[in-house]
Design a protein around this nucleic acid. Sequence first.
DNA 1: GATCACACGTGATTC
DNA 2: TGAATCACGTGTGAT
Lengths: 212, 212
Amino acid sequence: MEQENYNRLNVSLDELGFNSENVSKTWKKRKEYYNEDGIRVFTAKNLGAERRRREKHISRLYILRSLIPNITKMTKDSVITDAITYTKRLQYEVDTLTQELHALEEKENLEERAEPKIAEYSAAEDLNNWGIQEEVQVENIGENKLWIKIIIEKNTGRFMKLMETMNSLGIEIIEANVTTIKGAYLIVTSIKGISFDVHQAKHLLADIIKSI
Amino acid sequence: MEQENYNRLNVSLDELGFNSENVSKTWKKRKEYYNEDGIRVFTAKNLGAERRRREKHISRLYILRSLIPNITKMTKDSVITDAITYTKRLQYEVDTLTQELHALEEKENLEERAEPKIAEYSAAEDLNNWGIQEEVQVENIGENKLWIKIIIEKNTGRFMKLMETMNSLGIEIIEANVTTIKGAYLIVTSIKGISFDVHQAKHLLADIIKSI
DNA sequence: GATCACACGTGATTC
DNA sequence: TGAATCACGTGTGAT
């Protein structure tokens, strides 16, 4: 009826070996392909292969998407983006879980050969013994939202100082998780507040931790 | 007319030269084509947008690739495929680790539960303006250890006050989990400190919450 | 109406 | 060589 569109025309050429009589000069500059009867066709020979390749790619994406629990949008890019955040979350979970597991196992071993004396011990010593490094990690997870991971020496006063400072900066806590691991506090929190640059926020937190 | 338009479109599709700020090497090698009047033919207006979209997509893929330890090939499809297998592996690891951890924790709890029976006290406090049922729940989970669940109105200052007060009482936080739910903070924490009676602790916390 | 995401057919490149 | 991968500019539909 109306003007046949470009793509559909090529499809039919590909499938039917259609040959057009009117070919413009510029069109002729293209590589020319011929079918079995020696008739020139306007389709590249890798057309079918490229189609199959695209289909495969899309199905791969579907598979990946099916593995991810929280899909924000259905776009291709979203699948990739969500896969990135989800992979990071999984990696982090594996990290913390193995640490917790090791801590528990070690505790079990200690309890087996000695009296259960959990009351007093030096957190700083533990920190050194386990070779845990203090750490600040910041990632942007949305508009004015940051994901923060902090590892500091187990010291309640210091922890409070950190929270106070964050509070005084007008930072709102969306979610927080505090765990004690081997004489250290592992703090993972999502915050919302002033639009911080990730880099700035990281250094700010690092400075706070150093100062207290 | 229609045929003419068709040809003209195809000329401009991929053989037309395009001068832009970002031109790839391969693109530069392309020839520029002109129509019969020597005028270079049009380019689509969404050309730049589409380029930017492609670049974004590719950079996303790079990010995803950087998270995956074992990359078999450098192709786009490989990144997806590897992401799939890696994600499955991570999910499996998280599964097994949590299972192991729970098994160990259960074992620990059984050992501790040998002595005193857990005393539980749960009470619903008055409703606040938000219609949220504030709540304080306290359980004894070991020697000088308390498990506490608190629901308060989402208010960072109030949360900080609570933490400060707990800190000033010499309470050490073993583990804490803060979640925001519909304008409320849900705080679940394990603390260690002076030997509190469960009832005392519960009323103390309730008083603190009321006072702030 | 403008933007966005997409599939398409194609030429070049790589292996 | 042939098969596979890629970037490209486009038309279209959805929003």
